[in-house]
Nucleic acid binder design. Structure first.
Lengths: 209, 209
DNA sequence: GTCTATAGTTTGATAGAC
DNA sequence: GTCTATCAAACTATAGAC
């Protein structure tokens, strides 16, 4: 007698099509802006007609929702990699610099993605609980990291977030593709770290004090 | 013989209508979001029909442009008032706190206005040179103020801007209408001021050099 | 699942009478 | 300057054949 197939080829194909749709949407978002593309554009790019997309997503907002979840999941994976890597088991100053660079670089690498993840610029779009989950986890992990290095005041955490967000916004708005604010990142983070009392990275020889 | 009229009543009326249109657009932007209103909405609100607006503005983008210029002019006036007021001829620490609060409060008071002034969220909109002029002047004035208090490094200026912008974004995105980040403003600005070497506001008694 | 065909809406903008 | 009437275009979404 025949055994049941061990792979569900139909499901695999369906999942691949879903990914194709999302990839096309990302590409269009990067090329033209987060919301400057239509379902027709997406369909055309993958050799389909617009109505066919409705077999895979129930609306355009559902596509945004999937993209939102995808972006935050991707970033969550990076964060988890980062905090388990050897160079982040070191001095607090090293850790906070690594976390800051990770967030900055990820944000600046893709304007459309950053807008989707961190600004609410699409009318009517609110992420579903499922898509929002990885974002919540990233914030929790970040706070745990800071707590672990002695930063327990929630206000200090918010100020750190604000410094990062502010530099990112300026980089994207005033010097997209450049690195002027990236060059200021360590200085700004050190300023914050000094203020909250993190030990300096290289305590040369108990300099002054 | 008859003297020419000293007032141009037609011009006054025209200018008043223009202002009515802009006021209606602002109100709608605040109520529904920066771009969630139509020319029909604006017209209805002032008792007109949509096509009549074209006697006063050549397009919807032209309305945005006028709003952009209006917002920055308004802010420029506030800044000029602020820097000539008595309490800002004092210690650098006092001045920088005043400037920071002024910007923060103005930004947070109106989300739609902030988005129009500082983010590029309207597809196809670029401010005209004329509307952009007050924004340029505000930046110039701010830099002059900082220079006057000894902050000459451009990077330090950028970091100050970033801290302000970051706190504003967080306030608007995560606690609109609240004051959680406003409560952190002085702390964050002092952190920056300490780092760039501004004298403390109340130099109690040469504390720890 | 993908297609054709089209509904149903909304919108910025124009033409031309008054 | 304001109106009525209407265009032209764009877009999401649905119905139903294959």
């Amino acid at each position: 007698m025949l055994g049941a197939p061990t792979r569900d080829r139909a499901a695999e194909r369906r999942s691949a099509t879903r990914r194709e749709i999302l990839d096309a949407a990302w590409a269009l978002a990067r090329e033209r802006g987060l919301s400057d593309w239509t379902l027709r554009d997406v369909a055309t790019r993958i050799g389909m007609r617009a109505p066919s997309l409705y077999s895979h997503f129930e609306s355009k907002l559902a596509i945004y929702d999937a993209m939102f979840g995808q972006a935050w999941s991707e970033y969550e994976a990076l964060v988890r990699d980062c905090i388990t890597s050897p160079d982040v088991s070191g001095a607090p100053r090293t850790v906070i610099r690594s976390m800051s660079r990770l967030f900055f670089d990820f944000a600046v690498a893709d304007l459309a993605r950053y807008q989707l993840m961190n600004q609410r610029s699409i009318p009517g779009f609110t992420p579903s609980a499922q898509s929002f989950a990885p974002a919540v986890r990233v914030v929790r992990i970040s706070i745990e990291q800071l707590t672990g290095m002695g930063v327990t005041d929630r206000g200090d955490v918010e100020i750190w977030f604000a410094i990062l967000g502010g530099l990112i916004d300026q980089q994207l708005a005033n010097d997209p593709g450049g690195h002027s604010r990236r060059d200021l990142l360590d200085r700004a983070v050190d300023m914050w770290a000094d203020s909250v009392g993190l030990a300096p990275e290289t305590p040369k020889k108990e300099q002054e004090q």
